[in-house]
């Protein structure tokens, strides 16, 4: 079927099987392979992209249902010579090893920091109606939808804390 996708500011017209997930459309049809397929069932977070600014699992979305949405992938956050603050912090803090979960982690963290800035509580927030503060416990919980088998978790938390602190100062 004919559909279109708005990805990283560009509109693409695609002729795809309706069964094509957003993830497979990105990887196989648009050659945007930064979004990874770790489980294909919403159980690992490696495919995390931003849909209208919110993080979602691209593997559990049909491409044809998102022709009106703005999609940002890791490629849209920054290239190798133009890293976003989070991307740079992941390098500095070694927030990855094999690198396969990494784009999903960074997309997830990008949106997660916005969620915190918007005052969204989490499972570990003591006061549902109070303010949230970006500490290691909060970040660990909020990043638990992104598995990392190499287990860069402590370094991922450090990288995100560093960027959160920078944002607070700014």
């Amino acid at each position: 079927m004919q559909t279109r996708l708005h990805v990283n500011g560009t509109t693409h017209h695609l002729d795809i099987d309706p069964r094509t997930t957003l993830l497979d459309a990105l990887r196989d049809h648009l050659r945007l392979t930064g979004s990874k397929k770790g489980c294909d069932h919403g159980q690992c977070g490696a495919c995390t992209v931003l849909l209208n600014g919110r993080r979602i699992n691209a593997c559990l979305a049909l491409a044809c249902m998102h022709d009106h949405d703005e999609i940002i992938t890791i490629e849209g956050l920054g290239g190798p010579d133009d890293l976003s603050p989070l991307q740079a912090a992941f390098v500095a803090h070694d927030g990855y090893q094999c690198g396969y979960c990494t784009p999903g982690q960074i997309c997830s963290a990008t949106a997660m920091l916005e969620e915190m800035a918007d005052g969204w509580p989490s499972h570990v927030t003591d006061d549902l109606t109070g303010a949230t503060k970006p500490d290691a416990t909060e970040i660990s919980e909020r990043m638990s939808g992104n598995l990392c088998r190499c287990s860069a978790y402590p370094n991922i938390v450090d990288a995100i804390l560093a960027v959160a602190a920078e944002r607070t100062r700014a």
Partner: peptide, 8 residues
């Protein structure tokens, strides 16, 4: 679930 799944 997770932050990603709750968003969808």
């Amino acid at each position: 679930a997770s932050g990603q799944l709750r968003n969808k």
